[in-house]
């Protein structure tokens, strides 16, 4: 079976799985069905991306580059452990997406969420963190990677400013909302708006610090990392979508 057929089958499997889980959950409600449905949906939606990466048999250089970026993100989180929520991981995940493309942004995000929790503790929140990081990295690739590749870096200071704004917003809105929603489902039986509001409000300071940290690290690192990654990509012809 060719790679693209396999990838398409994985997409089909994930889509059918998501529809089936939601239908089953609605038809036969059980305890904590919201938590279970949400968990199943995000796990299934990560599968096709990872299967596509795995299926195209990535080259040695691609594998090592992704490992380097993930390791920098994990080491960064460990280096700043004494400042809660002030961590460079998200900035590096986003820069992986900008410099190498959306697929790599997704993969680095998934791996960063997963591996850094080997140091900070796995728990019921891990899948949500993996998915949220991955989504932010993927979208960064969608919005910024083509222009970064064409200009071997940022086309203008405006482009860089836009990336910093994207990083802060994505961290606050996408990551914050998804991970806080997970907390609502972990802690209460169902998704009630009053419970959700309480969690979201108490999450604001944490998410604000996280978003600020992402903006700071993007300001410091983005030019450097994007230039080096795009150079690596064009020089060795890596990470070309098939």
């Amino acid at each position: 079976m060719s790679t693209s057929v396999k990838t398409r089958l994985t997409w089909l499997f994930a889509l059918v799985g998501i529809v089936a889980v939601i239908t089953l959950g609605v038809l036969f409600p059980f305890d904590r069905n919201y938590y279970f449905i949400a968990l199943a949906v995000i796990t299934l939606s990560m599968l096709p991306f990872l299967a596509a990466f795995e299926g195209r048999k990535p080259e040695a250089r691609e594998i090592v580059t992704i490992a380097v970026l993930t390791a920098l993100a994990v080491a960064g989180r460990a280096a700043f452990f004494m400042l809660p929520q002030f961590k460079p991981g998200m900035a590096i995940v986003i820069l992986a997406g900008v410099g190498l493309g959306r697929e790599s942004g997704f993969v680095v995000g998934v791996l960063h969420g997963f591996i850094s929790n080997f140091i900070f503790g796995q728990g019921p929140w891990t899948p949500w963190q993996m998915f949220s990081y991955a989504l932010c990295g993927f979208l960064a690739g969608v919005f910024f990677s083509r222009s970064a590749e064409r200009h071997s870096g940022f086309s203008s200071p405006l482009q860089k400013t836009l990336l910093i704004i994207y990083g802060a917003l994505a961290t606050f809105v996408i990551y914050g909302l998804l991970v806080d929603s997970a907390s609502v489902l972990i802690w209460s039986s169902e998704f009630t708006w009053s419970a959700a509001r309480a969690i979201y409000l108490s999450g604001i300071p944490f998410n604000a610090v996280h978003a600020f940290a992402t903006a700071v690290f993007l300001t410091l690192l983005s030019t450097l990392i994007v230039e080096r990654l795009t150079r690596l990509k064009t020089r060795y012809g890596l990470f070309q979508p098939h």
């Binding site: 990872l50 990466f53 795995e54 048999k57 990535p58 594998i63 090592v64 992704i66 490992a67 380097v68 993930t70 390791a71 994990v74 080491a75 460990a78 993969v107 791996l111 997963f114 591996i115 080997f118």
Partner: peptide, 16 residues
């Protein structure tokens, strides 16, 4: 199951 991702996983643990 996922050789490439597992290899990256092992490398990251060594790199940190």
């Amino acid at each position: 199951v996922v050789p490439a991702l597992s290899l990256i996983f092992a490398m990251v643990l060594r790199f940190v």
